[in-house]
Design a protein around this nucleic acid. Structure first.
Lengths: 225, 225
DNA sequence: ATTATTTTGTGATATAACTCACATTTTAAT
DNA sequence: ATTAAAATGTGAGTTATATCACAAAATAAT
């Protein structure tokens, strides 16, 4: 399985621009590992010397708040996790947990920095990703604080449907408790809104499966606040 | 005043690592401008081909929410503004407005990218700044959503005192309405908490001047949520 | 298959903060 | 200095959502 790393490196969005020598260097310090739902990739407060490259699957970034935990964002492959940590004081500022079976490649921070230095296209790409992250956090923050329940939940459903699954039907990998942590509200309120939406004919739920029947309504509810 | 740019470049945290040739290139595409309180540096929704380098002064980053505007973070010099825009689709995703007299240097995006390419230390520094921004937004987001009024206001006062002014006495450059937009609550609630704190002997207010008398209390209130 | 555990649905009650309203103070403009 | 405009203080009523409580359903474990 370790040999997969080279493939991993080559297949990664960064690698297409790498020289053979660079790939060689990367492959020595990279190990591909498979994870299941619930596994922890990064744990807030711990020391870290790796960047995690999420090659497939889905994960949630979450931080411990003064009261309850808070899910910061849902991350889909491909993306790099733990960048702030590796640039900064090496103490993880957030946790990352798998929510759908994932393949992850841990890249040693020194190899990662070598890559950044050696390959400008790569470092440019990382900057892009960091900028996107920042904007995404902005968006979620505005969502959390300026909308009320219906709007928040509508927004999350749209995000799952569009950004994560690209389909109007999907299996939601989060519990209602998770959803509450994602929009900063209680599990009960999430439940109430979800059944409300179903009664209004906006979505159809059966178990973990959600089907969006009326996206237009969802968009309106999300926009209205 | 235009010649200041070279000084600006040399004095900037990036420049110490630049070659003469690089500084030359930068100075051609850089103009230092002075701004007053209330001036707009970046306007959400507009097209932009510059990175703004805040050399001195204070600014607020804010976005238009579904209902009210929301202040995302307070930025002090030195720092780069508008990075996500220049990497992305060039449409500004947020506004930046001066809240204390500022000197700003607008760096053409092409020159900026040249710098990133030419100088790895510089691009590394930019990545650091992007990471810091992300973590700061995390923090503010948790603050907004998980604490109640007293905690939110305590947190902002601590931030102003520690990160921005480095003093227990400072002149607050924001109106209570601004503070409301910063912590996502109403102007009235801000006022109530502020007078409450004063009655409790935690702060002393006279006009725009705020003195923190009991930082320990503030820290406790902020931490408790 | 059966049991234990986790997740979900829904009512009743409590509460923090918003809104509205208006007086007062402060700041800016002429 | 005088007036206009903006910012602030504070009460009373309203409201969205949290919390508590428990039943039902679904999932996981033996």
């Amino acid at each position: 399985m370790k040999n997969d790393c080279k493939i991993c490196a080559i297949k990664s969005k960064a690698a297409s621009k790498l020289s053979a020598e660079e790939i060689e260097k990367l492959s020595f310090s990279c190990a591909l590992v498979k994870f299941r739902k619930g596994d922890s990739l990064i744990r807030q407060g711990t020391f870290s010397t790796n960047v995690a490259y999420l090659r497939s699957g889905l994960a949630k970034v979450h931080i411990a708040g003064p009261y309850h935990e808070q899910i910061v964002r849902i991350v889909n492959a491909p993306s790099y996790l733990g960048l702030p940590t590796t640039f900064g004081d090496k103490i993880n500022q957030y946790s990352v947990t798998v929510i759908e079976a994932a393949e992850v490649c841990f890249i040693d921070i020194n190899a990662f920095r070598y890559l950044l230095k050696a390959n400008h296209d790569f470092s440019y790409e990382i900057m892009l990703e960091l900028c996107r992250n920042e904007l995404e956090v902005f968006h979620r923050c505005a969502n959390r604080t300026q909308k009320q329940m219906r709007g928040k939940i509508a927004d999350v459903l749209i995000e799952l449907s569009e950004r994560i699954y690209n389909s109007n039907i999907f299996y939601i990998p989060l519990t209602q408790e998770d959803l509450g942590n994602l929009v900063d509200s209680s599990r009960e309120s999430v439940s109430r809104v979800l059944t409300e939406f179903e009664k209004d004919g906006i979505i159809r739920i059966s178990g973990k499966k959600i089907e969006i029947l009326n996206k237009k309504s969802l968009l309106m509810i999300s926009a209205k606040g």
